[in-house]
Simulated scan of single mutants.
Amino acid sequence: MNDRPRPWTMQQIALAAGVSVTTVSHTLSGKRPVHPDTALRINRLIDEFGYVPDAGARRLKSGRSQMIGLAVPDISHWYFGRIARGVEEMANEHDYGLIIASTSNSDPRREKRYFNMLRTRAIDGLVYTASREIKPTDELMSMASSPAPIVLADEDIEELEGLPSVTSTNYSGARDLGRHVRSLGHTKAVIIAGFPGLHSTVQRMRGIRESFPNALAIHGDFEIRSGYELMGDLIAHEVKFSAVFACNDFMAIGAMRRLWEEGLRVPEDVSVVGFDDVDMASVVTPGLTTVRQDMLEIGRQSARLLIEGLAAGTMEGLSSVQLPVELVVRGTTGPVAE
């Protein structure tokens, strides 16, 4: 049995402090001046007895829940966890609550549930992160045409170009990788790419092919196992290459493992690069040359755009954001072997 006392209501705080409920409300919000002695008395009571605002009453009064949602393909994944943390930080800074939902790679049934939360105003707005699906679901298309308060995070979706988005400069980052590897004398390269329809995959391949127009591309699912298996396929088919461009760090690390099992040295025999700069990239041996993007800031900026739109009462006029990336050269790239 839980004997812990329940937090006081605003009415109880007002009664104990000998003031009106309005005075307590002004003390909490800071929107109206309250005598310092009165404010001190109210805050001491709140510290002693606790206070939880009535979310239902606030929703009835303002028409808002003061909650936003975040939909990601897989909340357990390191990459999306970083984005979620950024959204949470920005939400907290603006006194918004956050509901995080995993769409299980855009399961239409799950998406419908979260979009219904938006329709019924259980949440005021939604940060949406695309998954492996090439086409947005009918539910998302319907919501985007409203226009609903939705911000796209991490991935642009061509069919939803009217929605504001926050992405990294994938093309320029991959272009810098290509130029770096080309400067080391490499001419034969392969690309272990991500899902074919994702905007990031298209942009990263385009950037790499600026320096390696004839590079063979094969597609994986961004996981370590995928990079490992695809590298095994390349070796089994005796594809000739001296450089490997993986479209994320996990696939790069999987490819490195397979090369090591085949007795091929990185970077003496094969140079390998990734994209993202996950924590593991700096601790593998040798350290992985990659492009650093800030997933935390993607989350923060996505939430900022959404909250700005909610404050303005419209998402129209909000500009999409592209965050800069940085080439990080470590030990997995070296001069082409003679």
Results as ranks from 00 to 15, higher is better:
Ile307Thr: 09
Asp74Ile: 03
Asp3Ala: 08
Met10Phe: 06
Gly50Asp: 09
Met295Lys: 12
Ile208Gln: 04
Gly50Leu: 10
Asn2Trp: 11
Tyr96Arg: 12
Leu216Asp: 01
Met315Glu: 03
Leu118Phe: 00
Val272Ala: 13
Leu160Pro: 06
Pro147Ser: 00
Val278Gln: 10
Leu216Gln: 02
Ala14Phe: 10
Asn170Arg: 13
Ile134Tyr: 02
Gly18Glu: 09
Pro5Met: 08
Glu297Asn: 09
Thr187Pro: 12
His219Glu: 01
Thr103Arg: 02
Met67Trp: 06
Asp294Ile: 12
Met205Ile: 08
Val181Lys: 02
Ala16Tyr: 13
Ser183Phe: 00
Ala84Glu: 11
Arg175Phe: 09
Ala281Leu: 14
Asn105Ser: 07
Pro73Ala: 01
Val325His: 07
Glu139Gln: 04
Glu159Cys: 00
Phe49Trp: 15
Pro149Glu: 00
Asp74Glu: 10
Thr120Arg: 05
Arg330Lys: 13
Pro73Cys: 02
Gln66Val: 02
Ile13Ala: 13
Gly334Pro: 08
Met256Val: 10
Arg179Pro: 03
Ala193Gln: 03
Ile191Gln: 04
Ile100Thr: 10
Val244Glu: 04
Pro7Ile: 14
Gln203Val: 01
Ser211Thr: 03
Asp277Arg: 07
Ile253Leu: 15
Gly263Arg: 12
Glu326Met: 13
Phe115Cys: 00
Ser282Gln: 15
Glu262Ala: 15
Val278Cys: 11
Asn170His: 08
Asn92Ala: 13
Glu326Pro: 11
Val21Pro: 13
Ile46Leu: 14
Arg6Thr: 15
Glu161Gly: 03
Ala122Asn: 12
Ile235Asn: 12
Ser168Leu: 10
Thr137Phe: 02
Asp124Trp: 11
Gln301Asp: 06
Ala189His: 11
Cys247Met: 15
Arg206Tyr: 06
Arg330Gly: 11
Asn2Thr: 11
Ile13Gln: 10
Arg258Asn: 02
His35Pro: 01
Gly254Arg: 05
Ile253Gly: 05
Glu133Lys: 04
Arg121Asn: 04
Glu89Phe: 08
Lys240His: 14
Leu323Gly: 14
Pro213Glu: 15
Thr333Lys: 00
Val321Cys: 08
Thr38Leu: 10
Lys61Trp: 08
Thr9Asn: 09
Ala312Val: 03
Phe222Gly: 02
Thr129Leu: 03
Ile253Glu: 15
Ser183Pro: 04
Ile235Arg: 11
Val202Asp: 00
Arg179Gln: 04
Glu111Gly: 00
Val34Gln: 13
Glu88Asp: 13
Asn2Glu: 10
Glu93Phe: 00
Thr333Gly: 03
Arg209Lys: 14
Gly56Gln: 11
Thr289Leu: 11
Val19Leu: 07
Pro108Cys: 05
Leu305Pro: 09
Gly197Phe: 01
Ile157Phe: 01
Ala311Thr: 14
Thr129Val: 15
Glu308Trp: 03
Arg179Ile: 07
Ile191His: 10
Met251Gln: 12
Leu234Tyr: 10
Met10Lys: 10
Leu28His: 11
Thr38Asn: 09
Arg82Glu: 15
Gly227Lys: 03
Leu296Ser: 04
